[in-house]
Amino acid sequence: MISGTTGLVGLLGQPVSHSLSPVMHNAALEAMAMDWRYLALPCHGADLGRVLDGLQAVGCHGLNVTIPHKQAVASHCQELSPLAARLGAVNTLTPLSGNGWHGHNTDAEGFLAPLLDQADAWTGCDAIVMGCGGSARAVVAGLQQLPLATIYVAGRRPDALEQFLEDLEEGSNGSVSLHGIPLETQRLAAQLSGSKLVVNTTPVGMQGHGDSNAMPVDADLWNKLEPTTTLYDLIYTPRPTPWLQRGQQRGCQTIDGLEMLVQQGAASLRRWSGRNDVPTSVMRKAALERLKANPAG
């Protein structure tokens, strides 16, 4: 029941009508008996500053930020966490007690969560990250917290890949080597046999984005997967993607992006509420039920 005391949290982006965040956050808020509601708030880039000022003025308790504003919103923050500053991207805003917003990024934490269940298994292993865009930055930042030996980042544009590596090496503890390779079959094949984890951060295979049956790079490459390899796709529509289906056929462990979505959302809600009892199981169940009812996301 919405009342005169109901607090506001929400998601800024464009578009946001397809987002699973409202259903999973509101399920969590109900389970926590918090008199808050989470809304999807469409916002054009030209309006971002005014929208943020208005939401601060009406006492908004916190915001998630999604495409296309994750980079631009950083310049509207009065404070940035070290991680958000390093990544150059913000997905979580918390109001400051005086005025303005504190910007943080929970994507790395959300990505890492399902891998921490077997953290020791990654000791001395190699990982491959396909893509060097905004999502890949959070992925690599998360992977740098694992006891890996080497992270190979595969990108199509040498200039973008070089800048990516420079940014992510700065501020790292240096215990994990970071290398760039071309995003093409021959170089990936050379690294695949020795890598225990492969992460797809590209939109290839996403429902509504080109050929939904497509797989990253050459589909035949993935016929060489070993059952000891874990595949992690940031995409969660369809479930599973063709790439993860191929991995399952090869006996690989597979993880899709829904768990990252749930975990990064739970991390945001913990920051806003100051509570550690955020029910991730409730959020996961609500998101799965919505996906089942509307597989397009």
Rank of each mutant, 00 (worst) to 15 (best):
residue 5 T to S: 15
residue 5 T to R: 14
residue 15 P to F: 09
residue 24 M to Y: 10
residue 25 H to C: 08
residue 29 L to R: 04
residue 32 M to S: 07
residue 34 M to I: 13
residue 35 D to C: 03
residue 45 G to W: 06
residue 49 G to N: 11
residue 55 L to F: 11
residue 55 L to T: 06
residue 56 Q to K: 13
residue 57 A to S: 15
residue 62 G to P: 04
residue 65 V to W: 07
residue 67 I to L: 14
residue 67 I to N: 03
residue 72 A to V: 13
residue 76 H to W: 13
residue 80 L to C: 09
residue 82 P to W: 01
residue 82 P to G: 02
residue 87 L to P: 01
residue 92 T to I: 03
residue 99 N to K: 15
residue 101 W to V: 09
residue 102 H to D: 05
residue 115 L to S: 10
residue 118 Q to L: 03
residue 120 D to A: 15
residue 122 W to A: 06
residue 125 C to H: 12
residue 130 M to F: 10
residue 139 V to N: 10
residue 150 T to A: 00
residue 151 I to A: 03
residue 153 V to S: 03
residue 156 R to T: 08
residue 161 L to Q: 06
residue 162 E to Q: 15
residue 164 F to N: 09
residue 164 F to R: 07
residue 166 E to H: 12
residue 169 E to T: 14
residue 171 G to Q: 07
residue 172 S to L: 01
residue 177 S to C: 11
residue 188 L to N: 02
residue 190 A to G: 01
residue 194 G to V: 00
residue 194 G to R: 06
residue 203 P to H: 03
residue 210 G to D: 09
residue 210 G to I: 02
residue 214 A to H: 05
residue 214 A to W: 01
residue 220 D to Y: 02
residue 220 D to C: 05
residue 224 K to N: 14
residue 226 E to S: 15
residue 230 T to K: 00
residue 232 Y to S: 04
residue 239 R to W: 14
residue 241 T to Y: 00
residue 245 Q to S: 14
residue 245 Q to Y: 01
residue 247 G to A: 12
residue 249 Q to R: 14
residue 251 G to Q: 11
residue 252 C to M: 05
residue 257 G to M: 01
residue 258 L to E: 05
residue 262 V to P: 01
residue 264 Q to A: 13
residue 265 G to S: 08
residue 274 G to S: 02
residue 275 R to K: 12
residue 277 D to L: 01
residue 288 L to I: 12
residue 296 A to Y: 02
residue 297 G to W: 10
